[in-house]
Nucleic acid binder design. Sequence first.
DNA 1: GCGCCGATCATCA
DNA 2: TGATGATCGGCGC
Length: 146
Amino acid sequence: MQSGSCSFNLWKVAVDFDGTTVHRVRFLRTADTGFVPVQFTKFLAGKGTDFTPLKSAALDGDSVYAKIYREVSKIPYGKTKTYAEIAEAVGTHARVVGNAMSRNPTPLIIPCHRVVGSDGLGGFSPDIDIKKALLTLEKKVSKNIP
DNA sequence: GCGCCGATCATCA
DNA sequence: TGATGATCGGCGC
C-alpha cells in the first residue's frame, strides 16, 4: 500500500492505493508526503477525463453500496445524474444513494460530484466548494472535447 | 412560489 | 435495536 497527495485548489487530495487499486481518497487541508498516480494530477489539472486503469476497491462486492458505486461510475465526464435516477437504476431509495455518497471511500474515482439533487447541487463532504469546482472544471474541459 | 414534514432504507454504533 | 443522513414529493400558507 502506498499513499501520497496532490493539490486541488485550496485542498489537498490524499490517496491510498496499492498498484492500480485505490483504497481511499480524502480531501485534506494539509498535505502528506508522497506521490499519487499520474491520473489524479492530470484529472485535477483538466488534462484527463478518467482514471483508467485505476479502480476503486469500493466497486467490489454485491452490496447495495457497491451497486450504487458502479452505477455512479458509469456517469460520463461532464454529465450529471440525480440521486433519484441512481436509486431507480439500482433498485433502492434516493436516501440510500445519498448515504452511499456520504460514505464514499474514493471520491473522484467514483464521481460522486456528478450526482446532484433533483432541484440543484445536492451536497458534498467535507466542502461543497470542491463539488462546485469539480463540476465547473468538467464543464469547461468537456467543451474542449467536441 | 416557498417552506415544512413525513416517507423510506442501508449502514454503523 | 435505534439513530443517522450529500433526498424526494406533497401539502398548507
